[in-house]
Design a binder for these strands. Structure first.
Lengths: 217, 217
DNA sequence: GTGTTTGCTGTACAGTTATTCAACAGGCGA
DNA sequence: TCGCCTGTTGAATAACTGTACAGCAAACAC
């Protein structure tokens, strides 16, 4: 006998959260290309018409899925920084590295999804906007911590904004590499690479970022 | 009166080059998703059947387009390194930075295409394979230069492979950031960021990459 | 001019896509 | 228990997707 119960009702917000989860599962399973409305709905155990009922369309759902993982990641990073709030700038940066490069965030599935989103930034306006917002926040957190470090070290005319661009590039680059091939390095090695960057900055690398005083060789 | 001339013939290799160009244009214009056989052929000014005539299918064309820009970029980088062959490791690395972050390679169109390809690495095997090959070459060039630097500086147990992963991440991260938003930094600033990394490595950052002697901090 | 080669066209095809919407039914209030 | 509200269904739709292939015609040899 076929199942009599065809569906169970849900609060719209709960259902939308389920659809976002299913979207992320499909994203990692089929990639950005292979992920279709039917597959997402099959994953969520609902009928294909439901996405258009809760969202303006598939694109809106995908954009919200991107915002969801962005929120989740930024939340974890903010939390890590707050836990180290009382300590020095160096320790706060280390906490940020540990959080950014934890096993949880270096999860291949998460990074693959991120990679696919990055690839869509230039063609999907909603994703572009969400990216821009989170990226600027990420960079400003690092710029602030590096500015504190400069104060502690009494560096004059230190361009913390530019240094933050470099450190963000290093972290994003590590994410990128790990997303493209998770076997390249371990989370511990990634943290070591970032600590070496700070070591080098403290040992003398900072001079390049000082506006007036160029290196005298 | 409608145009009488329907098409002009071309040498297969020339036509294929045109199709690859059209593929890259469509990639940046419509993204990896929106790029279809019909759009590529419209861009190239040919009939939609021509791709199947010259290639086994669309995927083969896309993979060859990726290899084409990869070859182009790696060729420029190899050339830059050869031009600085007689000099010290530091100078060779600087030449590599200059080449990697030249206006030509930080071209938004090129980076947008690259970004789209990166997003497809995990779903298209041919692209994954081509990426893996070029990425390993890129890293080995840097590892070799860093190994030379370690010899010159008499660093013992320096893990140039790990340091190369970090430097590759920094460079890839700068490409990524510039692809996502070209206004974040200028090519000159990107080179400065890389030079600061080397400065820091020389000033003391290298110790983290020495296997035995951990920092006594 | 004629013949031959073959690069190229363009329609046809089968399969997929996102989206729509009238009908259905779960679950709550009364 | 009834009745309403509304979350959900699922078939239908139109617009796409990549590929195949029979035939056309450009360009060259003669």
């Amino acid at each position: 006998m076929a199942s009599q119960v065809h569906f169970t009702r849900m609060d719209p917000e709960v259902r939308k959260a389920h659809l976002i989860d299913a979207t992320l599962v499909c994203l990692k399973q089929y990639g950005f290309q292979g992920m279709s409305v039917r597959k997402i709905c099959a994953q969520a155990g609902v009928s294909p018409g439901l996405i258009s009922h809760h969202y303006a369309g598939k694109d809106e759902l995908v954009a919200e899925a991107y915002q969801a993982i962005t929120r989740q990641v930024m939340g974890q990073l903010r939390e890590a920084m707050q836990n180290a709030a009382g300590q020095g700038a160096r320790e706060r940066l280390s906490a940020f590295f540990q959080a950014s490069l934890s096993e949880k965030l270096l999860n291949p599935h998460l990074l693959e999804a991120w990679l696919a989103f990055w690839g869509a930034v230039k063609t999907a306006e909603a994703i572009n906007h969400a990216h821009d917002k989170s990226y600027k926040e990420y960079r400003s957190i690092l710029a602030h911590a590096l500015g504190q470090l400069a104060l502690e070290q009494c560096w004059v005319d230190f361009d913390s904004g530019l240094a933050a661009i470099g450190l963000t590039a290093l972290l994003d680059g590590l994410w990128l590499e790990h997303g493209l091939d998770p076997d390249t390095f371990t989370p511990a090695e990634a943290v070591l690479i970032c600590e070496a960057w700070i070591d080098g900055l403290l040992a003398g690398g900072f001079r390049r970022f000082c506006v007036q005083a160029q290196r005298t060789g």
